[in-house]
Amino acid sequence: MNLIEVKNLSIQFGGLTAVDNVSFAIKPNEIFGLIGPNGAGKTTVFNMLSGFYQADHGEIIFNGNTITDLKPHTINRLGIARTFQNIRLFKGLSVVENVIVALQQREKHTWLDSLLETKKFYQTEKILFEHSIALLKIFELDRYKNHLANALPYGAQRKLEIVRALATQPKLLMLDEPAAGMNHSEKAELNDLVRFIKNKFQLTILIIEHDMKVIMNICDRIVVLHRGQKIAEGVPLDIKASPPVIEAYLGKRIT
C-alpha cells in the first residue's frame, strides 16, 4: 500500500509544459528523492502535491484520498507538510510563536474561552507553549525561543521551518532543497537530521534536491525529472549509473 501515488501528472504555464505526465508512488516510511537539473519541474510537482497549483491532468492519491483539487490547508490537514526553497517563516513572530501557529491549527479552541480569558484559555496556551518548546528542544532551537524568526542564523531558520512543518503532525514531510545555502558541515549534518526525523516521528519524507551528493546518501529511492518528464526511477546506485541521468546533468555526450 502506497502512502502517496502520483498518476500522469501534467501542468502547463501558458503553453509551456512544466510537468509532463509524471507518475511515481512512495511507500510509507520511505525517504524518497525528487531530483533533476534546474528547471526540471521539481518545485512545480511540490506545488501541485501541496495544493498551490492545480494539475491540468492526472491524479494525486494520498492515503486513500484523491487530493488533486484540494486547497493547501485541507491537504495539510490530511497529513502533508512541506518546507520552501526560499525559507518562508513568519518573520515578525518569535521562534516559539512560529511553532505555536502550526500547533494551534489542531487544537480545539473556542472563541468564548479566548474572550473571557477562562482557565481553559490559559491552559491551552500553556500546553501549546510547552509542546512547542519540547519540539524546539529536540532540534536544539529552544535557546532561540524568544528571538524573532528572521533574526536566526540561516541554518537555524531552515531547521525551524522543518520543526514548524513537523508541528502540523504530518504523515508525509516534503523538503524543498533543504541543503540550499548550507555549507559543507551543515550538509553533512542534514543527512543525519533527515534520518533522525524519519525515525523519531515515523514519517515518510520526500526531498527535492539538485545536489546529487546530498541526495544519494539520504534517499532510499529516487525519481529523476528532466524538462518536466520522468527520465529515471530507482535506488541511488542505479540512478548514478543511468545514462539518461548522466546526460541530463552533464549534457549530451558528443560521439
Binding site: 498551490f52 490547508h73 518562508r88 513572530l93 505555536i100 479552541h109 474572550l115 473571557l116 512543518a165
Partner: peptide
Amino acid sequence: RLKKSWYGRNLWALNEDDIAAEVMGLDL
C-alpha cells in the same frame, strides 16, 4: 482579546506569510 487569542495569532501569521500559513493548515 481576539487579537491576543489563537485567532489573532492566525491573522498575524497570514499577514506575515499567507502561503506558509496555508501550509500550516490555516484556511485563509
